[in-house]
Each structure stands twice: as structure tokens, then as C-alpha cells.
Design a binder for these strands. Structure first.
Length: 578
RNA sequence: CGGGAUGUAGCGCAGCUUGGUAGCGUACUUCGCUUGGGACGAAGGGGUCGCAGGUUCAAAUCCUGUCAUCCCGACCA
């Protein structure tokens, strides 16, 4: 490709609406163009990158025994009603109506469709197991799209679905996919961590996420990991052992009684007022889960992990209650306490979820729904709560200990580029997707699903590999492998040599760009660095000695070689890294 | 949903306080000159100033409404 013909426009400045590195770089280097929030045109350079990632994914999925197909973007409401998700999926589902006023949606994921395809065709145990996948655009109307390609409303995804006879088959396929994913991300030049995670709206039991570890803001997830063993988990799923703490208040409170605690609106104020550690306070938080209030109880020095709390109730939407909603809840129970003095006592019309660690607390301090008062030296049995349930709803924090080996846990940011779920019969059962076994009995398929964000992977690669001058693509996913820069296109010798190398490399199957623009060398170098070609060959002043300059973008290393040697070396290096 | 900010040329911005029909940088076109890290000079093309009302002789500028975009937050009691 001649640079003069390449459809790309690099910018002098970063786009003003970009926050994270990948968004800034991809925008400035002319890879993407925004049409609407979270919706982008993939310009030719970007599209080349995406196709390369797709092909790596294809090769590895095929190698793992999966088969590619393509399902529709537009899906009818009926299938989503069968699975029960038409109501459940909420506003994130992009809905539309056809000319007959029938409800449709743009696919955010394809469990319903694939299950419907499978139940029509997979009738016999002889046909299983099967793993089917596709690569296409997905649509999710995110609350707040941001970070460029990292959280878009329209994005490219690979989704695969496996159908097995039983749990054992699923386990095997799950491992098979985990291995395939490792190879895929390695080939893309990305270091990933496979972490345990919550299975979220898609449902199911076991799931893992593949995280690209990054120190930038783009890492939206907290990942907890142990350096001494292989434990690692997303914050919505992580568990930990707590360090020792005072959780029995017997040395502070001789008896159970109501104390005046004026103006102690926060945990800090309360622990200061009573001169006790916050580990002796039971904190009561009001959440609204699927529009209904829920009270969460947790040791006051710890925080609630909202996804865990939501799952404990089986909800799909959670937020903390507003002060108006708390007032309403109080009034309904005949109290008028303000936040800071709320407690579980007497709250009969609302589910109460206590964190597991609350079981160990004794003689603690708790709000009793009277402003400026707390009950001290209390135990849960004193509070007479009928609607109480225990669950792990605690947010793990740095400084706590590994649940497997007891060593300290660490936290880091990660970008989720892939995930794998064991779905079990979550979809096959309600959608009556069954096979007939050898004895003529029917069983629902045991399913798994496996996703990779193709466009997000590309953005994560930029987050992982860049410098102040631009992107540093790894060879396997770079839009082109090498750029040849003749410093002065009016110099016949330079142009002749550059042109020859260009031809030679193309013959060898190398993807090469010849920067034939009548620009000063500085402009060409800046663009080459910004776009991030893995290799650059400069044909310039050293040509008098019969040499060209060979430079590696990722490492910065450079050397002078004859044009023939340079071509040879490029072919060798590039083939090795594909 | 709540709060804040911003909408002026492809991109980045000024002008608005104090109304007089639009400007800078970059990008684009042409010419000259230059050619190893975003040169220089000259001449050009490109904008119903987000949209709709209103005030006024006159509105990018003032008023009202509306739409859009970006950021933060969504209450840890």
C-alpha cells in the first residue's frame, strides 16, 4: 500500500472527548471515528486490526473443534420471552418495532437464538457435543458508554455456545475453551489473567474472565490475586480471610442497653463518640433491588459488594436508596429515624441480608431506628429479626488474605477481554431444548457460553502497548507489518531502493506501506510512530554507504543494514511473530 | 436518574462580559522554497456560530425553550 493512497488522516492533537489512552491514540491516529456515543466507524487501519484479531480467534476456535456460523442481529421478542429475559434485560436491550408493530431487538448476545437453532437440529445424543460460534456486531445500550472502544454500544464480539450431554462433558469443553483463550490472547501479544467472576445477567454457575492487567483508568474491574498460589478473582466474586480484629464488645459494654449518641451520623463519628473500633459496629444499609428495598447488614469497617448483594436476592438491578426512599421505608414501619440511626430491628416488611462475617460479631453497636440513639452490647438474637438471611456480600479489600493459602491478597486493575461461563440448563430447560438419550429419554442440553470482545481486545492491546509517540502494535495484529520511509522522494536513488524493497517484501507476503508522500522526514516519522507500524525502514542519507536504517517500534532498537539484509531480516522477524 | 460543563470550518480553539453579520492554529488546494523527527513564505477554498422562538434597526453575542455532547455522581448512613 502506498501511503499517499491509504485512507487515513492523522491528527495533530488528541480528540478532546477522549479520556483513556486507547481512545486518544486510536482517534488521533485515524483508526476510529465516532458517530454517536459508544458507536464508531472502524476506519481501514482499524478494520485491518480487527480482521487480524478475528482470524486468530477463528483459527484457534476451529482448532479447538468449534464451528462458525452467523446468526441474525435482529431478533424477535418471542424468543426472549421464552427465556424470560425480555423483561429482565432492561434498558440495555436495544428494542425496535417492525412495520407490523411487532417487537424486535438488536442482539446483545445470542443464547436465545442459538438455543432455538440447536433444539430444532440437535435431537440425538449421537450429535453431541457441539460448539458453535460466530463473530459479529453486538448492541448494548449502556447506561454510560465511555472509554472509546472499551465500552461501546455497538461492538464486535465472538460468542460461542457449547452443547453437551452432561456436566462432565461441559467441564471438559470449559477447559478446552480456557486453553483456546489463552492461546488467542498470547497470539495477540496480550498478557492476560484468568480470574473467577460473577456470572451476571447471562446466568449460570461457574465463570471466569480473561483480564488484561493495566495500570490505566481503562481497567474498569478490580482484580484480586494471590502471589503465592493461583487464586485470582474479579471483585464481584472475590472472597478473603480477614485479619484479626476486635469483634466482641464485652470489654466495652457490660450490658445491653440503649445509649444516647447525639449527632453520630457516620461510622467515624459514632466510633469516636463511643471510643470503640468500627469493627464493633453493625452497619445497616438500605438498597433498592429491582425497585424494592432491602436492608444489608455488614461490619462497619467493611463495604458491601453490590453485585454479591444483588445475587443474594436474585435481583438484576441494584442501587443504594435515596434519603427520600429511606424516609418512606421508616414511615412505613412507624419510625422516623434519619440515616445514621437505621437498624434491622422491627423492619418486618423488608428482606434483611447480613454478611457472613456478621455471625461472628458479639456485643456490638447497632442503630435501632431512633434518631440520636444506638443499642450497645447487642447481639442479633436481641433484635428479633425474622426475615434475616446470611450471604457473602462483602467487598474484598487489599490487606486481606487469600482464601486458598492464607497469604496476602493484592489488587490491580484489569480490562475484561474474554469470559467463559458454565450455563448448565439455564436456557435449555425453559426453552425446552432437549436431546434423546440411548434409552429414548429426553434431557436438556448442558450448555456453556464463551465470549471475546474483538474490538475491546484491540483497544486493550493499545492500552498495553504504547508510548508518548503513539501505538506499538505487536506484529500479529498490526494493520501493516512495516513502513518504508524514503526521506526524500525526489531523490531517485532513495526512491529506487525503497521501491525495490517494497516489491520484494510484498512478494514475500509481508504487508508493507511505502510512505511515498512529498513530506519532510519528520512528518513521516511522527506518523509512523503514531500509527504504530512494528517495523520501520528508513531510506535516507546512509544510502551513500549502501545502507538503510531498520527500526523496531516496540523495543526502539535500530541498526544499519544493506537493503537486501533488511528485507531478509524483516521477512524472518515478521514470519516468526505471526 | 441527579449535578457540572460545553456546543463557532475535518480536528483543536478564540470571539460572547460591553449586540453592528466571524476569526486563529492545524488539516485541505495552488505556487515558490525546503527535505533525517510534525519547516518557511505567498495566494486560495471551506462555517445557516447545535436547533427553535423572543428582544432589537441589527443577535455567535442578550432572554426563553429545546436538542446534543462530555465529565462527575448515584448518597457506604
Amino acid at each position: 500500500m502506498k501511503m499517499s493512497k491509504l485512507f487515513v488522516q492523522t491528527l495533530r492533537e488528541f480528540p478532546s472527548d477522549a479520556e483513556v489512552i486507547s481512545h486518544k491514540m486510536l482517534g488521533r491516529a485515524g483508526f476510529i471515528k465516532k458517530l454517536a456515543p459508544g458507536i464508531y466507524t472502524f476506519m481501514p487501519l482499524m478494520w485491518k486490526v480487527l480482521k487480524k484479531i478475528e482470524n486468530i480467534v477463528r483459527e484457534e476456535m476451529d482448532r479447538a473443534g468449534a464451528q462458525e456460523l452467523l446468526m441474525p442481529f435482529v431478533q424477535p421478542k418471542e424468543l426472549w420471552e421464552e427465556s424470560g429475559r425480555w423483561e429482565v434485560y432492561g434498558k440495555e436491550l436495544m428494542r425496535l418495532k417492525d412495520r407490523h408493530d411487532r417487537d424486535m431487538c438488536l442482539g446483545p448476545t445470542h443464547e436465545e437464538i442459538i438455543t432455538s437453532v440447536a433444539r430444532d437440529s440437535l435431537k440425538s445424543y449421537k450429535q453431541l457435543p457441539v460448539n458453535l460460534y460466530q463473530i459479529q456486531s453486538k448492541f448494548r445500550d449502556e447506561i454510560r458508554p465511555r472509554y472509546g472502544l472499551l465500552r461501546g454500544r455497538e461492538f464486535i464480539m465472538k460468542d460461542a455456545y457449547s452443547f453437551d450431554l452432561d456436566e462432565e462433558g461441559l467441564d471438559k469443553e470449559y477447559q478446552n475453551m480456557a486453553q483456546a483463550y489463552k492461546r488467542i490472547f498470547e497470539r495477540c501479544g496480550l498478557e492476560t489473567k484468568m480470574v473467577q467472576s460473577d456470572s451476571g445477567a447471562i446466568g449460570g454457575s461457574v465463570s471466569h474472565e480473561f483480564m488484561v492487567i493495566t495500570d490505566t483508568d481503562a481497567g474498569e474491574n478490580d482484580v484480586f490475586y494471590c502471589n503465592s498460589c493461583d487464586y485470582s478473582a474479579n471483585s464481584n466474586h472475590a472472597v478473603s480471610n480477614l485479619p484479626d480484629a476486635v469483634i466482641d464488645g464485652k470489654n466495652y459494654f457490660a450490658e445491653t442497653k440503649v445509649l444516647d449518641t447525639p449527632n453520630t451520623h457516620s461510622i467515624e463519628e459514632l466510633s469516636e463518640f463511643l471510643k470503640i473500633p468500627s469493627t464493633l459496629i453493625l452497619k445497616s444499609l438500605v438498597y433498592i433491588i429491582d425497585k424494592k428495598p432491602v436492608i444489608a447488614l455488614i461490619r462497619a469497617d467493611k463495604a458491601v459488594e453490590e453485585t454479591k448483594l444483588m445475587n443474594a436476592i436474585g435481583g438484576i438491578d441494584i442501587r443504594i436508596a435515596s434519603s427520600a426512599e429511606i424516609a418512606e421505608l421508616m414511615a412505613e414501619h412507624g419510625f422516623d429515624a434519619i440515616p445514621g440511626f437505621i437498624g434491622p430491628k422491627g423492619m418486618k416488611n423488608v428482606p434483611i441480608i447480613a454478611d457472613e462475617t456478621v455471625k461472628d460479631m458479639k456485643n456490638f453497636v447497632v442503630g435501632i431506628n431512633e434518631t440520636d440513639k444506638h443499642l450497645v452490647g447487642a447481639n442479633l438474637s436481641d433484635l428479633d429479626i425474622e426475615n434475616l438471611k446470611y450471604a457473602d456480600i462483602r467487598l474484598v479489600e487489599q490487606g486481606e488474605f487469600c482464601p486458598q493459602c492464607g497469604k496476602p491478597l493484592f489488587v490491580t486493575k484489569g480490562i475484561e477481554v474474554g469470559n467463559i461461563f458454565k450455563l448448565g440448563t439455564k436456557y435449555s430447560k425453559p426453552m425446552n431444548a432437549v436431546y434423546t438419550d440411548i434409552e429414548g429419554k429426553t434431557h436438556p442440553y448442558v450448555m456453556g457460553c464463551y465470549g471475546i470482545g474483538i474490538s475491546r481486545t484491540a483497544a486493550a492491546a493499545v492500552e498495553a502497548h504504547y508510548d508518548e509517540y503513539g501505538i506499538k502494535w505487536s506484529v500479529a495484529i498490526a494493520p501493516y507489518h512495516v513502513v518504508i520511509v524514503p526521506v526524500n522522494i525526489n531523490d531517485n536513488e532513495q526512491m529506487q531502493i525503497a521501491e525495490n524493497m517494497y516489491q520484494e517484501l510484498q512478494k514475500a507476503g509481508i504487508e508493507v506501506v511505502l510512505d511515498d508522500r512529498d513530506e519532510r522526514a519528520g512528518v513521516k516519522f511522527k506518523d509512523a510512530d503514531l500509527i504504530g507500524f512494528p517495523y520501520r525502514v528508513t531510506v535516507g542519507k546512509t544510502i551513500s554507504e549502501g545502507l538503510v536504517e531498520f527500526k523496531v517500534r516496540q523495543t526502539g532498537e535500530q541498526e544499519k543494514l544493506s537493503p537486501e539484509k533488511a528485507v531478509e531480516k524483516l521477512i524472518e522477524n515478521i514470519k516468526k511473530n505471526l
